[in-house]
Write a protein that binds this DNA or RNA. Structure first.
Lengths: 340, 340
DNA sequence: TGACTTTGATCAAGCGCTTTACCAAATGCC
DNA sequence: GGCATTTGGTAAAGCGCTTGATCAAAGTCA
């Protein structure tokens, strides 16, 4: 086993209480020399406090649960990295779990994390999360007795959340294309129950309306955010001869379209202007890097952690919905409509 | 707070001891009806054991620490996902940390994890890990008092490890190229202090020797495993007119070469046969998917967790070095030398 | 000198759970 | 009926740490 305060106390000829007071820098009347002696012994023994014992008496574990739907998705990987880094900087650790896009797992994991004594939970919900009956979810959240923050998702539940303004993001993207003269803009939407998918579709529609462009239902396609689904939908887009631009709900599906085009010897970059969502780092591989809507992950992580730490510090109970403005990253995948 | 055994005991009119015995399915003389009553109440209250308290008395936390150098690298992301899944299946949770390729962080994190009471640690060491003085490292590992398993790295330290046979992987890759008639094979090696990099270089050299091909130092290039470094090295490879094939220490650097080629209108797939390492999932985006050496991540995770759980169960102390055979995944990036 | 204050600590309870030893009541047996 | 045995539990200590209450000794002051 590891050394305990008892070991230090014995070696320093003081009581455990004194050791505790000193190592935690609590105000006490213990003189400098004794303090130094205790600190030195702790150092020598490489004393590490037993968090379980600390938790038992203080009810603070300095563990925060983080649940993501799929860590192999670069978006969630970057988010996880940033959150872990920020938490560590505030002296917290990350209890991690991958829900593998399953709601049942999410519930299991949440229970398990509470059992493991996390101080709070950051949940990046899977698409399946919002399938559930509203009141059941609300009850679960309310019964947690620990702060829960939803990331990358919005909800009308009474719950803290941090999300990007997806409607705005899609508007920005659509208007960028319109600015370059495009009027026949295809949209690849995610499935209706996907987190943030309806909002992106809404933004697309809003932007068209605002610019007096009629929505053509033949220009709207659907995918499931994977490269494959982009690949599958690609021929249909190429078949619609008047489409000049594509807005995709994420970058991955554009990758699929590009792959299909290359295999079929179509010059996709000449034929279409393209904008995606997510700022996928692998855009680097593409010979023409994609213009994309960047959800600034660092910002989201910061906001979420600020919110969480504030709740923990001040024990507030009401829930807050934070919305972050996305930004557009202009690269080379948009050409003026007339230059084609 | 959450409900405790005390709450259950009160409601069931029994002692806390009984509740503990029943909920843990310990042999006891408590009759079925009482057991059922206790279980029912626990269920109703959504009782979740307080792991900290369990840990304090049993010294088992059911938490395993996992440290990776960079979660945004798909290889580590897949590894993390698999490990998390497997651990959860065995009733353990994952205390995660990203060391951001820093040795200091690794040490900090390990101490913190021990303090948080993990039962064991799975460490995927960063390159900088092996910079350290050998004896210091050994001392640190020995003083842990918890099983530590090194993943994706080999070491002559007394420590458990699970790694792929990188020499063999590189031999397989090189011989695959030789089989297709290639003799002028470029090699992009990782920096010497990179984990597994010297082994891959060794395999390349071994395979050449075995096949009576002289090593040409002009065919050996160096990168740091990033797309950029492949991009940078690309013109030098294109300049060596007799090179017909490229073996890269990872897929990412090949991506960089492909990108450079496209930008410079070189038909890279016609000019070179290529083999990489890692089975990077984004090979999908490339129009000619890459043949690669796959380090079966699932196998590595399984072996590591088996080893860890065995150590925990049987409290063995000696260290074991497990080596896994890699496999080659044949795709379309190799052409016969004569068909060029 | 005696009352009061300050200094330098310690005591003890409690956090929630596990586990071994123990005990009282009921039952079985001759 | 008296003893042993079985049944159905409980008591209590301990895990390592925190913290408010407490206390003895030394120093201060009038």
């Amino acid at each position: 086993m590891n050394y305990t305060m008892k070991d230090i106390a014995q070696r320093a000829n003081v009581s455990v209480s004194s050791v505790s007071l000193v190592l935690n820098n609590k105000p006490s009347r213990i003189p400098k020399e004794t303090k130094n002696k205790i600190r030195k012994i702790a150092e020598e023994l490489n004393y590490r406090p037993n968090s379980a014992a600390v938790f038992l008496s203080k009810k603070i574990s300095y563990n925060i649960g983080l649940i993501v739907p799929d860590i192999t998705n670069p978006f969630f990987a970057f988010l996880t990295k940033t959150i872990d880094e920020r938490l560590r900087a505030s002296n917290y650790s990350t209890l991690f779990a991958d829900s593998n896009n399953s709601f049942e797992r999410e519930v299991q994991i949440i229970n398990n994390m509470i059992s493991h004594g996390v101080d709070g939970i950051l949940l990046v919900p899977s698409n399946k999360f919002f399938y559930q009956p509203h009141n059941k979810l609300q009850e679960m959240i309310d019964n947690l007795n620990k702060p829960l923050i939803l990331l990358n998702a919005s909800s009308d539940l009474r719950v803290n959340s941090v999300n990007f303004d997806n409607v705005l993001g899609a508007i920005m993207a659509t208007e960028e294309l319109i600015k370059y003269g495009h009027k026949s803009i295809a949209f690849i939407k995610g499935k209706d129950h996907f987190v943030n998918a309806p909002e992106r579709y809404q933004g697309y529609k809003d932007a068209l309306k605002k610019n007096d462009i009629l929505l053509n239902p033949n220009y709207v396609f659907e995918g499931d955010y994977t490269i494959q689904s982009g690949y599958q939908v690609a021929p249909n887009i190429f078949n619609q001869r008047d489409i000049t631009a594509i807005l995709s709900s994420n970058d991955l599906m554009l990758f699929g379209i590009i792959k299909w085009a290359k295999e079929h010897r179509e010059n996709v970059f000449k034929r279409f202007s393209m904008v995606g969502f997510d700022n996928n780092p692998y855009t680097e591989i593409i010979e023409v890097p994609l213009t994309t809507i960047d959800q600034e992950i660092g910002k989201m992580a910061d906001k979420a952690i600020d919110l969480l730490l504030t709740i923990l510090r001040e024990k507030v109970r009401d829930s807050k919905q934070i919305i972050i403005k996305p930004r557009i990253i202009r690269r080379n995948s948009i050409k003026s409509e007339h230059s084609r």
